[in-house]
Design a protein around this nucleic acid. Structure first.
Lengths: 189, 189
DNA sequence: AGCATCGTTTGATAATTATCAAAAACAGGA
DNA sequence: TCCTGTTTTTGATAATTATCAAACGATGCT
Protein backbone atom coordinates (compact mmCIF):
# COMPACT_ATOMS: atom_id res chain seq x y z
CA UNK A 1 0.00 0.00 0.00
CA UNK A 2 2.73 2.46 0.95
CA UNK A 3 4.68 1.32 -2.07
CA UNK A 4 1.80 2.33 -4.26
CA UNK A 5 1.58 5.79 -2.75
CA UNK A 6 5.32 6.18 -3.11
CA UNK A 7 5.06 5.35 -6.81
CA UNK A 8 2.17 7.76 -7.26
CA UNK A 9 4.18 10.44 -5.53
CA UNK A 10 6.58 10.31 -8.49
CA UNK A 11 3.89 11.89 -10.60
CA UNK A 12 2.40 14.38 -8.14
CA UNK A 13 1.81 14.96 -4.43
CA UNK A 14 -1.54 13.95 -2.92
CA UNK A 15 -3.45 15.17 0.14
CA UNK A 16 -4.08 12.75 2.99
CA UNK A 17 -7.74 12.61 2.03
CA UNK A 18 -6.94 11.61 -1.51
CA UNK A 19 -4.45 9.01 -0.32
CA UNK A 20 -7.03 7.44 1.96
CA UNK A 21 -9.64 7.36 -0.77
CA UNK A 22 -7.21 5.55 -3.02
CA UNK A 23 -6.34 3.10 -0.28
CA UNK A 24 -9.99 2.17 0.17
CA UNK A 25 -10.45 1.59 -3.55
CA UNK A 26 -7.69 -1.01 -3.84
CA UNK A 27 -8.18 -4.78 -3.86
CA UNK A 28 -5.40 -7.31 -3.46
CA UNK A 29 -5.11 -10.58 -5.42
CA UNK A 30 -2.72 -13.49 -6.00
CA UNK A 31 -2.02 -15.11 -9.37
CA UNK A 32 -0.07 -18.12 -10.61
CA UNK A 33 2.63 -18.27 -13.27
CA UNK A 34 1.33 -18.51 -16.86
CA UNK A 35 -2.20 -17.44 -15.81
CA UNK A 36 -3.87 -14.78 -17.89
CA UNK A 37 -4.81 -11.49 -16.30
CA UNK A 38 -6.68 -10.67 -19.49
CA UNK A 39 -7.45 -12.49 -22.71
CA UNK A 40 -8.07 -10.98 -26.10
CA UNK A 41 -11.75 -10.18 -26.41
CA UNK A 42 -12.32 -9.41 -22.74
CA UNK A 43 -12.88 -5.87 -21.52
CA UNK A 44 -10.25 -4.61 -19.11
CA UNK A 45 -11.95 -2.73 -16.27
CA UNK A 46 -9.06 -2.24 -13.86
CA UNK A 47 -5.68 -0.70 -13.47
CA UNK A 48 -3.28 -2.95 -11.58
CA UNK A 49 -0.24 -2.31 -9.43
CA UNK A 50 2.38 -5.04 -9.21
CA UNK A 51 3.48 -5.75 -5.66
CA UNK A 52 5.36 -8.85 -6.74
CA UNK A 53 5.86 -10.71 -9.98
CA UNK A 54 6.22 -10.08 -13.70
CA UNK A 55 3.75 -9.74 -16.55
CA UNK A 56 3.75 -9.27 -20.27
CA UNK A 57 1.28 -7.81 -22.74
CA UNK A 58 1.23 -9.51 -26.12
CA UNK A 59 -0.58 -9.57 -29.41
CA UNK A 60 -1.29 -12.94 -30.92
CA UNK A 61 -2.33 -13.68 -34.49
CA UNK A 62 -2.14 -16.84 -36.60
CA UNK A 63 1.25 -15.89 -38.00
CA UNK A 64 3.01 -14.49 -35.01
CA UNK A 65 3.03 -13.32 -31.45
CA UNK A 66 4.51 -10.03 -30.31
CA UNK A 67 5.20 -9.12 -26.70
CA UNK A 68 4.90 -5.35 -26.61
CA UNK A 69 5.54 -4.68 -22.95
CA UNK A 70 6.87 -6.27 -19.79
CA UNK A 71 6.08 -5.10 -16.27
CA UNK A 72 7.57 -5.83 -12.86
CA UNK A 73 7.39 -4.83 -9.22
CA UNK A 74 6.04 -1.30 -8.65
CA UNK A 75 4.76 -0.91 -12.20
CA UNK A 76 1.17 -0.08 -13.05
CA UNK A 77 -0.42 -2.17 -15.80
CA UNK A 78 -3.63 -2.39 -17.74
CA UNK A 79 -4.73 -3.03 -21.27
CA UNK A 80 -4.57 0.63 -22.10
CA UNK A 81 -6.76 0.51 -25.16
CA UNK A 82 -9.48 -1.59 -23.64
CA UNK A 83 -9.43 0.24 -20.32
CA UNK A 84 -9.84 3.63 -21.96
CA UNK A 85 -12.28 2.79 -24.71
CA UNK A 86 -14.28 0.10 -22.93
CA UNK A 87 -13.91 -2.08 -26.01
CA UNK A 88 -12.76 -5.72 -25.95
CA UNK A 89 -9.00 -6.02 -25.67
CA UNK A 90 -6.96 -6.86 -28.74
CA UNK A 91 -4.08 -8.02 -26.58
CA UNK A 92 -3.46 -10.60 -23.87
CA UNK A 93 -1.88 -10.04 -20.48
CA UNK A 94 -0.11 -13.01 -18.94
CA UNK A 95 1.91 -13.71 -15.81
CA UNK A 96 5.54 -14.57 -16.40
CA UNK A 97 5.84 -15.46 -12.72
CA UNK A 98 3.52 -15.92 -9.79
CA UNK A 99 2.36 -12.47 -8.73
CA UNK A 100 0.56 -10.27 -6.23
CA UNK A 101 -1.43 -7.37 -7.67
CA UNK A 102 -3.52 -4.51 -6.34
CA UNK A 103 -6.46 -3.51 -8.50
CA UNK A 104 -8.53 -0.35 -8.81
CA UNK A 105 -11.73 -0.45 -10.88
CA UNK A 106 -12.27 2.10 -13.64
CA UNK A 107 -15.60 3.26 -12.19
CA UNK A 108 -14.04 3.92 -8.84
CA UNK A 109 -11.20 5.81 -10.45
CA UNK A 110 -13.62 8.09 -12.25
CA UNK A 111 -15.46 8.75 -9.00
CA UNK A 112 -12.13 9.73 -7.51
CA UNK A 113 -11.53 12.08 -10.44
CA UNK A 114 -14.80 13.85 -9.58
CA UNK A 115 -14.04 14.06 -5.88
CA UNK A 116 -10.36 14.99 -6.16
CA UNK A 117 -9.11 17.25 -8.92
CA UNK A 118 -5.59 16.39 -7.74
CA UNK A 119 -6.04 12.70 -8.54
CA UNK A 120 -7.13 13.46 -12.08
CA UNK A 121 -4.12 15.78 -12.36
CA UNK A 122 -1.83 12.99 -11.19
CA UNK A 123 -3.23 10.67 -13.81
CA UNK A 124 -2.89 13.36 -16.47
CA UNK A 125 0.78 13.66 -15.55
CA UNK A 126 1.20 9.89 -15.50
CA UNK A 127 -0.22 9.72 -19.02
CA UNK A 128 2.31 12.31 -20.14
CA UNK A 129 5.14 10.14 -18.90
CA UNK A 130 3.75 7.00 -20.42
CA UNK A 131 3.36 8.80 -23.72
CA UNK A 132 6.93 10.01 -23.64
CA UNK A 133 8.23 6.52 -22.95
CA UNK A 134 6.31 5.08 -25.87
CA UNK A 135 7.49 7.89 -28.12
CA UNK A 136 11.06 7.20 -27.17
CA UNK A 137 10.70 3.51 -27.93
CA UNK A 138 9.09 4.36 -31.22
CA UNK A 139 11.92 6.63 -32.28
CA UNK A 140 14.55 4.15 -31.16
CA UNK A 141 12.88 1.44 -33.19
CA UNK A 142 13.43 3.49 -36.32
CA UNK A 143 16.83 4.97 -35.60
CA UNK A 144 18.70 2.01 -34.20
CA UNK A 145 19.57 -1.43 -35.47
CA UNK A 146 18.46 -4.58 -33.71
CA UNK A 147 21.88 -4.99 -32.14
CA UNK A 148 21.88 -1.43 -30.79
CA UNK A 149 18.41 -1.81 -29.37
CA UNK A 150 19.49 -4.97 -27.58
CA UNK A 151 22.54 -3.24 -26.16
CA UNK A 152 20.39 -0.41 -24.92
CA UNK A 153 17.87 -2.77 -23.37
CA UNK A 154 20.72 -4.53 -21.63
CA UNK A 155 21.87 -1.23 -20.14
CA UNK A 156 18.55 0.31 -19.25
CA UNK A 157 16.35 -2.70 -18.45
CA UNK A 158 18.57 -5.67 -17.61
CA UNK A 159 15.76 -7.21 -15.53
CA UNK A 160 13.78 -7.72 -18.74
CA UNK A 161 16.57 -9.82 -20.17
CA UNK A 162 17.01 -11.74 -16.95
CA UNK A 163 13.40 -12.56 -16.27
CA UNK A 164 11.86 -12.93 -19.73
CA UNK A 165 12.35 -15.81 -22.22
CA UNK A 166 14.53 -14.81 -25.14
CA UNK A 167 11.89 -15.38 -27.77
CA UNK A 168 9.63 -12.87 -26.09
CA UNK A 169 12.39 -10.31 -25.78
CA UNK A 170 13.08 -10.78 -29.48
CA UNK A 171 9.50 -10.00 -30.44
CA UNK A 172 9.64 -6.98 -28.13
CA UNK A 173 12.66 -5.75 -30.05
CA UNK A 174 10.98 -6.49 -33.34
CA UNK A 175 13.34 -9.22 -34.51
CA UNK A 176 13.32 -13.00 -34.73
CA UNK A 177 14.54 -15.14 -31.89
CA UNK A 178 17.40 -16.50 -34.00
CA UNK A 179 18.62 -13.05 -34.89
CA UNK A 180 18.57 -11.99 -31.25
CA UNK A 181 20.50 -15.11 -30.31
CA UNK A 182 23.17 -14.21 -32.85
CA UNK A 183 23.23 -10.58 -31.75
CA UNK A 184 23.80 -11.77 -28.24
CA UNK A 185 26.68 -13.98 -29.29
CA UNK A 186 28.29 -10.85 -30.71
CA UNK A 187 28.26 -12.27 -34.21
CA UNK A 188 26.55 -9.27 -35.69
CA UNK A 189 28.96 -6.46 -34.94
CA UNK B 1 -11.82 30.12 -32.95
CA UNK B 2 -15.04 28.17 -33.21
CA UNK B 3 -13.20 25.47 -35.08
CA UNK B 4 -10.91 25.07 -32.12
CA UNK B 5 -13.77 24.72 -29.66
CA UNK B 6 -15.40 22.23 -32.00
CA UNK B 7 -12.23 20.14 -32.02
CA UNK B 8 -11.96 20.35 -28.24
CA UNK B 9 -15.55 19.24 -27.95
CA UNK B 10 -14.48 15.89 -29.40
CA UNK B 11 -12.67 15.20 -26.18
CA UNK B 12 -15.11 16.65 -23.63
CA UNK B 13 -17.74 19.34 -23.22
CA UNK B 14 -16.76 22.69 -21.73
CA UNK B 15 -18.72 25.36 -19.86
CA UNK B 16 -19.11 28.79 -21.42
CA UNK B 17 -16.72 30.22 -18.84
CA UNK B 18 -14.04 27.72 -19.74
CA UNK B 19 -14.54 28.34 -23.44
CA UNK B 20 -14.12 32.06 -22.98
CA UNK B 21 -11.00 31.62 -20.92
CA UNK B 22 -9.48 29.49 -23.66
CA UNK B 23 -10.47 32.03 -26.30
CA UNK B 24 -8.63 34.78 -24.44
CA UNK B 25 -5.50 32.69 -24.13
CA UNK B 26 -5.10 32.10 -27.85
CA UNK B 27 -2.79 34.04 -30.17
CA UNK B 28 -2.93 33.92 -33.96
CA UNK B 29 0.10 33.84 -36.27
CA UNK B 30 1.05 33.41 -39.92
CA UNK B 31 3.99 31.37 -41.22
CA UNK B 32 5.65 30.75 -44.57
CA UNK B 33 6.39 27.45 -46.29
CA UNK B 34 9.64 25.78 -45.17
CA UNK B 35 9.91 27.97 -42.06
CA UNK B 36 10.64 26.25 -38.80
CA UNK B 37 8.13 26.43 -35.98
CA UNK B 38 10.75 24.85 -33.75
CA UNK B 39 14.37 23.83 -34.15
CA UNK B 40 16.21 21.09 -32.32
CA UNK B 41 17.64 22.57 -29.12
CA UNK B 42 14.89 25.13 -28.56
CA UNK B 43 12.33 24.72 -25.80
CA UNK B 44 8.76 24.38 -27.00
CA UNK B 45 6.48 26.48 -24.78
CA UNK B 46 3.23 26.36 -26.72
CA UNK B 47 0.57 24.08 -28.06
CA UNK B 48 -0.58 25.09 -31.53
CA UNK B 49 -3.81 24.63 -33.42
CA UNK B 50 -3.65 24.55 -37.22
CA UNK B 51 -6.25 26.77 -38.85
CA UNK B 52 -4.63 26.35 -42.26
CA UNK B 53 -1.52 24.63 -43.57
CA UNK B 54 0.57 21.52 -43.00
CA UNK B 55 3.50 20.73 -40.70
CA UNK B 56 5.86 17.89 -39.99
CA UNK B 57 7.90 16.88 -36.97
CA UNK B 58 11.22 15.28 -37.79
CA UNK B 59 14.41 13.99 -36.22
CA UNK B 60 17.63 14.82 -37.93
CA UNK B 61 21.05 13.22 -37.36
CA UNK B 62 24.16 13.02 -39.50
CA UNK B 63 23.08 9.74 -41.04
CA UNK B 64 19.41 10.25 -41.61
CA UNK B 65 16.28 12.23 -41.18
CA UNK B 66 12.99 10.76 -40.01
CA UNK B 67 9.65 12.51 -40.22
CA UNK B 68 7.65 11.06 -37.37
CA UNK B 69 4.39 12.98 -37.74
CA UNK B 70 2.45 15.19 -40.12
CA UNK B 71 -0.30 17.57 -39.11
CA UNK B 72 -2.97 19.48 -41.03
CA UNK B 73 -6.01 21.68 -40.57
CA UNK B 74 -7.75 21.24 -37.19
CA UNK B 75 -4.88 19.29 -35.65
CA UNK B 76 -3.12 20.30 -32.47
CA UNK B 77 0.67 20.17 -32.53
CA UNK B 78 3.60 20.70 -30.22
CA UNK B 79 6.95 19.12 -29.54
CA UNK B 80 5.43 16.80 -26.99
CA UNK B 81 8.62 15.90 -25.21
CA UNK B 82 9.95 19.43 -24.95
CA UNK B 83 6.59 20.92 -24.03
CA UNK B 84 6.05 18.47 -21.19
CA UNK B 85 9.54 18.26 -19.78
CA UNK B 86 10.65 21.83 -20.46
CA UNK B 87 13.86 20.42 -21.94
CA UNK B 88 15.30 21.45 -25.32
CA UNK B 89 13.59 19.72 -28.19
CA UNK B 90 15.29 16.78 -29.90
CA UNK B 91 13.13 17.23 -32.95
CA UNK B 92 12.37 19.95 -35.50
CA UNK B 93 8.97 21.22 -36.58
CA UNK B 94 8.71 22.65 -40.06
CA UNK B 95 5.99 24.04 -42.31
CA UNK B 96 5.25 21.99 -45.40
CA UNK B 97 3.02 24.82 -46.62
CA UNK B 98 2.25 28.37 -45.62
CA UNK B 99 0.12 28.22 -42.48
CA UNK B 100 -2.05 30.00 -39.93
CA UNK B 101 -1.74 28.79 -36.34
CA UNK B 102 -3.29 29.60 -33.00
CA UNK B 103 -1.01 29.26 -29.99
CA UNK B 104 -1.61 28.77 -26.30
CA UNK B 105 1.36 29.13 -23.90
CA UNK B 106 2.12 26.37 -21.44
CA UNK B 107 1.97 28.70 -18.42
CA UNK B 108 -1.46 29.90 -19.41
CA UNK B 109 -2.63 26.34 -19.90
CA UNK B 110 -1.55 25.40 -16.41
CA UNK B 111 -3.37 28.41 -14.99
CA UNK B 112 -6.45 27.19 -16.80
CA UNK B 113 -5.97 23.75 -15.25
CA UNK B 114 -6.07 25.37 -11.80
CA UNK B 115 -9.14 27.46 -12.58
CA UNK B 116 -11.11 24.83 -14.48
CA UNK B 117 -10.99 21.17 -13.46
CA UNK B 118 -12.91 20.44 -16.67
CA UNK B 119 -10.10 21.77 -18.85
CA UNK B 120 -7.57 19.55 -17.19
CA UNK B 121 -9.98 16.66 -17.66
CA UNK B 122 -10.29 17.47 -21.33
CA UNK B 123 -6.54 17.41 -21.71
CA UNK B 124 -6.31 14.15 -19.78
CA UNK B 125 -8.76 12.64 -22.23
CA UNK B 126 -6.91 14.13 -25.19
CA UNK B 127 -3.70 12.50 -23.95
CA UNK B 128 -5.49 9.17 -23.78
CA UNK B 129 -6.45 9.46 -27.42
CA UNK B 130 -3.00 10.54 -28.49
CA UNK B 131 -1.50 7.62 -26.61
CA UNK B 132 -3.84 5.16 -28.29
CA UNK B 133 -2.96 6.49 -31.72
CA UNK B 134 0.74 6.15 -31.08
CA UNK B 135 0.25 2.65 -29.69
CA UNK B 136 -1.66 1.65 -32.80
CA UNK B 137 1.07 2.98 -35.07
CA UNK B 138 3.65 1.16 -32.99
CA UNK B 139 1.86 -2.16 -33.26
CA UNK B 140 1.26 -1.71 -36.97
CA UNK B 141 4.93 -1.01 -37.49
CA UNK B 142 5.74 -4.45 -36.09
CA UNK B 143 2.88 -6.47 -37.52
CA UNK B 144 2.70 -5.20 -41.05
CA UNK B 145 5.09 -5.05 -43.95
CA UNK B 146 6.08 -1.78 -45.58
CA UNK B 147 3.67 -2.39 -48.43
CA UNK B 148 0.76 -3.03 -46.07
CA UNK B 149 1.53 0.06 -44.06
CA UNK B 150 1.54 2.13 -47.22
CA UNK B 151 -1.80 0.68 -48.29
CA UNK B 152 -3.25 1.48 -44.91
CA UNK B 153 -1.90 5.02 -44.98
CA UNK B 154 -3.45 5.45 -48.39
CA UNK B 155 -6.83 4.38 -47.03
CA UNK B 156 -6.81 6.18 -43.70
CA UNK B 157 -4.71 9.28 -44.39
CA UNK B 158 -4.67 9.96 -48.12
CA UNK B 159 -4.01 13.68 -47.47
CA UNK B 160 -0.58 12.74 -46.11
CA UNK B 161 0.32 11.11 -49.38
CA UNK B 162 -1.09 13.99 -51.40
CA UNK B 163 0.52 16.83 -49.49
CA UNK B 164 3.84 15.41 -48.33
CA UNK B 165 6.95 14.65 -50.45
CA UNK B 166 7.47 10.95 -50.97
CA UNK B 167 10.83 10.83 -49.25
CA UNK B 168 9.29 12.15 -46.06
CA UNK B 169 6.42 9.70 -46.22
CA UNK B 170 8.96 6.91 -46.64
CA UNK B 171 10.83 7.87 -43.49
CA UNK B 172 7.48 8.08 -41.69
CA UNK B 173 6.77 4.50 -42.74
CA UNK B 174 10.26 3.44 -41.73
CA UNK B 175 11.52 2.53 -45.19
CA UNK B 176 13.75 4.09 -47.84
CA UNK B 177 12.38 6.35 -50.49
CA UNK B 178 13.32 3.89 -53.22
CA UNK B 179 11.50 1.04 -51.54
CA UNK B 180 8.39 3.15 -51.16
CA UNK B 181 8.56 4.11 -54.79
CA UNK B 182 8.68 0.45 -55.75
CA UNK B 183 5.87 -0.43 -53.38
CA UNK B 184 3.79 2.26 -54.99
CA UNK B 185 4.49 0.91 -58.46
CA UNK B 186 3.04 -2.37 -57.23
CA UNK B 187 6.28 -4.17 -57.85
CA UNK B 188 6.41 -5.65 -54.38
CA UNK B 189 3.28 -7.73 -54.22
C1' DA C 1 11.94 28.07 -74.89
C1' DG C 2 15.81 26.86 -72.06
C1' DC C 3 17.86 26.03 -67.68
C1' DA C 4 18.14 24.69 -62.93
C1' DT C 5 16.16 22.51 -59.10
C1' DC C 6 13.57 19.32 -56.78
C1' DG C 7 11.13 15.09 -56.45
C1' DT C 8 10.49 10.50 -58.19
C1' DT C 9 11.60 6.27 -60.57
C1' DT C 10 14.52 2.51 -62.17
C1' DG C 11 18.43 -0.73 -62.18
C1' DA C 12 22.20 -3.36 -60.15
C1' DT C 13 24.26 -4.89 -56.08
C1' DA C 14 25.13 -5.45 -51.12
C1' DA C 15 23.61 -5.87 -46.48
C1' DT C 16 20.33 -7.29 -43.20
C1' DT C 17 17.10 -10.21 -41.36
C1' DA C 18 13.76 -14.08 -41.63
C1' DT C 19 12.82 -18.79 -42.19
C1' DC C 20 13.41 -23.64 -41.85
C1' DA C 21 15.68 -27.41 -39.75
C1' DA C 22 18.36 -29.57 -36.51
C1' DA C 23 21.45 -29.77 -32.57
C1' DA C 24 22.71 -28.33 -27.97
C1' DA C 25 21.76 -26.61 -23.40
C1' DC C 26 18.89 -26.26 -19.54
C1' DA C 27 15.26 -27.12 -15.97
C1' DG C 28 11.94 -29.67 -13.45
C1' DG C 29 9.78 -33.97 -12.10
C1' DA C 30 9.74 -39.07 -11.34
C1' DT D 1 20.21 -39.51 -12.00
C1' DC D 2 17.59 -40.01 -16.07
C1' DC D 3 13.88 -38.58 -18.87
C1' DT D 4 11.07 -35.05 -21.01
C1' DG D 5 9.81 -30.81 -22.56
C1' DT D 6 11.23 -26.19 -23.19
C1' DT D 7 14.53 -22.69 -24.45
C1' DT D 8 18.49 -21.31 -26.90
C1' DT D 9 21.98 -21.80 -30.38
C1' DT D 10 23.86 -22.92 -34.87
C1' DG D 11 23.84 -23.64 -39.89
C1' DA D 12 22.18 -23.12 -44.62
C1' DT D 13 19.26 -20.67 -47.56
C1' DA D 14 15.75 -17.38 -49.07
C1' DA D 15 13.42 -13.06 -48.77
C1' DT D 16 13.37 -8.30 -47.81
C1' DT D 17 15.16 -3.92 -47.80
C1' DA D 18 18.99 -0.56 -48.19
C1' DT D 19 22.39 1.67 -50.83
C1' DC D 20 24.57 3.66 -54.72
C1' DA D 21 24.12 5.57 -59.19
C1' DA D 22 21.83 7.30 -62.91
C1' DA D 23 17.82 8.69 -65.51
C1' DC D 24 13.41 10.77 -65.82
C1' DG D 25 9.77 14.17 -64.89
C1' DA D 26 7.72 18.24 -63.30
C1' DT D 27 7.98 23.02 -61.82
C1' DG D 28 9.33 27.65 -61.63
C1' DC D 29 12.18 31.32 -63.22
C1' DT D 30 14.58 34.41 -66.64
Amino acid sequence: MNKILAQLHQYAALSTDAQEAIGQALQKNHYAKNDFLLRKGQVCRHIYFIEKGALRGFYHTEEKEISHWFAFENDFVTSFHSFITGEPAVENIQFLEGAVLWAIPKDTLHELFDRFHEIERLVRIAYEKYYLRLEERFVNAQFKTAAERYEELLLTHPHIINRVPLGQVASYLGISQETLSRVRAGAMK
